[in-house]
């Protein structure tokens, strides 16, 4: 029984310590965090957004950018993430609003405006940190060896199936189909919960083509299990992905690029001083060596920092185009 008491004691200490550490140190003028920061992530632990968030948290802690306070990362996945987003947008003005952050990327933004009445004007954009893009890959046993063969098959009236993840991938697929001038029946898309599931179906030979961001496909390319055939970008990728041409290289098409941005927002009620503080903190993260080595390079993203004003304009523009595409 002694062990139980010990465990209970440790838990108790772990619970109580943060409380006592919450001394209030109110200061006027420039904002500095005075209590623990609640950082909402609307996807599950271990997913892309979660990794992104925790990578930033690590760097902020390391450089002590938040006045020695602690980040509480909250994975709130209810309602496909809408509940968490709504909750953040509704935080009332005051100290809480200044200590609340939300991981926000185009994969969150698009479903939010599609499925709910929540809009970017209900948030305070803080930063855009990086941009991700996709490629198409074929598996070892695929019927097609390169994009030219796929195009030939499409012209011959064959049906093509692409597997991918949700959100961004669907949007990119729709752009691709539109540019190719074919119907969604001829080139169809299978939505998976995660890119890893899509890759599984290609490795098993059930589907010919998979859409993926570089990070998820990296190992499979190295092992020769996947071959990049088309860069969904305005220019080719580097490294082992350089062999994939862009769409305009393969025929009379325009390039298809649907940049997936990863950003951070706060509640609408966040004070301008706090927003400026956070924008600077994220800028410092984006300039750190760790960010470049442990996130950007590792997961082959394009570094693209935008401060609060640039991020605001960027997200508003994104919302406008998405709404237009939805016919809303």
């Amino acid at each position: 029984m002694k062990k139980n008491f010990f465990v209970a004691f440790v838990l108790l200490v772990a619970l109580v310590l943060p409380l006592s550490a919450q001394g209030s140190s109110e200061s006027s003028g420039a904002f500095a965090p005075s209590k623990d920061i609640e950082w909402f992530v609307t996807s599950s632990p271990g997913g892309g957004s979660d990794i992104y968030t925790r990578a930033i948290v690590d760097i902020m802690n390391k450089y002590n950018l938040v006045n020695g306070k602690t980040f509480l990362v909250m994975n709130k996945t209810d309602g496909g993430g809408e509940v968490g987003r709504l909750q953040v947008s509704r935080v009332a003005a005051g100290n809480n609003a200044n200590h609340t952050l939300l991981t926000f990327n185009s994969g969150d933004h698009a479903p939010m405006i599609q499925n709910t009445a929540n809009r970017i004007e209900n948030f305070t954009p803080i930063a855009v940190m990086a941009v991700d893009k996709q490629l198409l890959f074929v598996g070892e046993h695929a019927k097609y060896k390169d994009w030219a063969e796929v195009l030939a098959a499409i012209k011959a009236g064959k049906n093509i199936v692409i597997a991918g993840s949700k959100g961004d991938d669907i949007a990119t697929y729709e752009l691709l189909v539109k540019e190719l001038g074919v119907t969604q029946n001829q080139v169809s898309f299978i939505t998976n919960d995660a890119t890893s599931d899509a890759i599984t179906s290609v490795l098993g030979g059930h589907v010919d083509i998979v859409m993926s961001k570089p990070a998820a496909a990296d190992q499979y390319v190295a092992a020769g299990k996947l071959t990049p055939i088309l860069a969904l970008a305005n220019s080719r990728f580097s490294g082992n992905l350089a062999s994939a041409p862009t769409l305009s290289e393969t025929g009379p098409y325009k390039n298809v690029e649907n940049p997936i941005w990863r950003g951070v927002v706060g509640p609408k009620a966040m004070s301008p001083e706090a927003a400026a503080f956070w924008s600077n903190a994220f800028k410092a993260v984006s300039e750190s060596a760790e960010w470049k080595a442990n996130y950007i390079d590792k997961y082959k993203l394009v570094p693209e920092f935008k401060d609060k004003d640039a991020a605001k304009a960027y997200m508003q523009e994104f919302e406008k185009t998405t709404l237009k595409a939805l016919g809303k």
């Binding site: 599950s44 979660d50 190295a222």
Partner: peptide, 30 residues
């Protein structure tokens, strides 16, 4: 599948996979 191919068979597998990547190991066929 997690160790041999880097494919998580369950939610927990996915978190372990995320862990592997954070420690600088590349899960996958290699």
């Amino acid at each position: 599948p997690l160790l041999a191919l880097g494919i998580p068979g369950s939610g927990t597998g996915a978190v372990l996979l995320g862990g592997l990547m954070m420690w600088g190991l590349n899960p996958g066929p290699l």
